[in-house]
Design a protein around this nucleic acid. Sequence first.
RNA 1: GGGGAGGUGCCAGAGUGGCCAAAUGGGGCGGGCUGUAAACCCGUUGGCAUUGCCUACGAUGGUUCGAAUCCAUCCCUCCCCA
Length: 398
Amino acid sequence: MLNVDEQLHLIKRNTAEVIPEDELARKIKRKGSLIIKFGVDPTTPDIHLGHSVILLKLRTLQDLGHKVVLLIGDFTARVGDPTGRVKARKPLTVKQIRENAKTYREQAFKILDPSKTRIDYNSRWLGKMNFSQVLKLTSRYTVARMLERDDFSLRYRENIPIGLHEFLYPLMQAYDSVALRADVEIGGTDQKFNLLLGRYIQKSYRQSPQVIITMPILEGLDGKEKMSKSLGNYIGVTEPPSEMYGKIMSIPDELIFRYFRLLTLLPESEIERLEKSFKEGKLHPKKAKKMLAFELVRFYYSEEEAKYQDERFERVFSKKEVPPELVSYPVNTDKIWVVELLRLTGLARSGSEARRLIQQGGVKWDGERIREIDRIIFLRGEHILQVGKKKFLKVVKR
RNA sequence: GGGGAGGUGCCAGAGUGGCCAAAUGGGGCGGGCUGUAAACCCGUUGGCAUUGCCUACGAUGGUUCGAAUCCAUCCCUCCCCA
């Protein structure tokens, strides 16, 4: 095992904050193996690269011999984390929560080491608390301090409703740290308030307070907003390799090395070397992006798959060839109206949208641009239907 | 409990009786340029349909030749006072 300083160096890399740093060193020296808490909200089951930033850090911690507790917030999910929220969340059913948690677990193990991960559910203790225990917990904190949070104060100022139960969320998840006797809690920078509250509550329950590690929030593919499913600017860890590769190729240049650092486990020295030649103009941005895309597909799939995607990308987008493997769509007639076909295949959501796409020159049939709305298409064998630059479909007569 | 403000398209936000499928901006989508980058430019953005029609401005009724716009009731939110 590495010594404490070496460990700290690896742990601190790419973090936003470690609070307080010296305490982390002391804890490692004293206990050796620490309990790392990571709270998971089972409301959004699909893990994307934004989440992977933290999971990769956890992976590093596991590799250093620490124990990760993946805490599924099945009970807190009934309230919903108000963090960054402009509206109150709608509560989920118990069944949905359970399914989401299962999906989350499966996906998280694409990154985490299952043998060094313990999974727990906070309903185990929160579900048993009675009202007097709740009163004890809530009396530890004040409304004024709760309102210090940006999200709450913003909503308060903007006259947007705040449910009383939303005040309970931070306290509940803080109590989780007490229940787990967490040494360290990790989360995104947007969780800083919650994590700090965990520290505070642990102290008031006479526990040694956890060290908190916050990780930067990853920008999405647009380079502006944070990566999130609802904004559609994300790459899911279960996405097919071609999607993963392609989406990486569409990120803005400014993001390339940030992604390298936060999304891969490549050594810092290697990344610095690449960044240097990029800045000197020796490494073309497209090349750098391809390396990034390659690395991510390699990590989530395999080296072989990554190589394949590398070639495929060149063929399809640089040389404008049709992708080698396409989703087939069987059709039963031998002639069909274009608009109908587009709607049938789902490449257009409605007839009106289909018309629009045609009028704007976004539809190709076997490589030929279709301009007439009333065009009738004749089918024999296999044909390629293309909408926009990225959407292809193999239409098969049968 | 009393008084006041407000609920418009994916979002923000105009519109206070016909010219409103609803200005403008953002986002999305399509095209151009390119490195499937950014920036930029052009177009488009409820649905169905070859004129046109249907559904839409919190909900339900009503006034009117005609309502997002007026009236009534209800639901929801916020502010001030208690």
